[in-house]
Design a protein around this nucleic acid. Sequence first.
DNA 1: GTTGACCTTCCCATGATGGAAAGGTTTAGG
DNA 2: CCTAAACCTTTCCATCATGGGAAGGTCAAC
Lengths: 132, 132
Amino acid sequence: MSRKLNIGQAAAASGVSAKMIRHYESIGLIANPPRTEAGYRLYGDKEVHVLRFIRHARNLGFSVKQLAELLGLWMDEHRPSSKVKALAERHIDELQQKIQELQLMKAELERLVHCCHGDHRPDCPILEQLAQ
Amino acid sequence: MSRKLNIGQAAAASGVSAKMIRHYESIGLIANPPRTEAGYRLYGDKEVHVLRFIRHARNLGFSVKQLAELLGLWMDEHRPSSKVKALAERHIDELQQKIQELQLMKAELERLVHCCHGDHRPDCPILEQLAQ
DNA sequence: GTTGACCTTCCCATGATGGAAAGGTTTAGG
DNA sequence: CCTAAACCTTTCCATCATGGGAAGGTCAAC
């Protein structure tokens, strides 16, 4: 009883914008869906399921490239879960590296901000440090 | 005694790539430098100083837009340091928000990874969670 | 039967950075 | 003095994920 949805309805049902659905199709991440006679894309439950999977992975910060791998593993009945785990661990490492970068920036900025009076006078250790 | 540098030398002296120096010029972040008869850009100590300032600010994660503000304040003899401090604090907040986002992703991923056996079998809580 | 809300494709923009092509200049070595 | 290497110039294209908008076709409701 799963009647087909057009792209707007599929977007609403999956949380992926229509714009991005078309984009994912154009880069080959998802299959070309069937069309109506007028050319409207039609999505069934299965396609919406894939789109939701994509949204969840994107929410966890996976790149589209990693997404392609994840989708491949998801579709593969014979995947070893070790591959999925390794992929996720690689991503965790990337996230950690990014977090650390940002934390270093933040710590340095906080140090500078604590040194700055922040009043009407022009003297400012922040600018001085940037100018070195 | 500050002889003029061409763009490659200015890049080496400031740590900003020649490519980016031209880019900053094209978007109006820095002034158009004088040129030789052949059209080569020429940079003096002052310009290199500005470029170093830019690099330091970029290293702290300031956007080019914020950079324009920072440069304006740096040049302004009558700036109130409160403005610089406010700008920096705004940036700290942005960094913190980004850090938190990434930390949430990482925490969720770690939770999933800990549930996954990571062996030759296909069963994988990570994929199951993504598929929901 | 018209209007509004969809859909289609195509092009452009973001932000910071790099690559490469096609052509001119300068410099060092022979 | 000539040539080759190492510069410089501009212009275009690419990244990555996303959105905006235009121009035009379609569908549903009143």
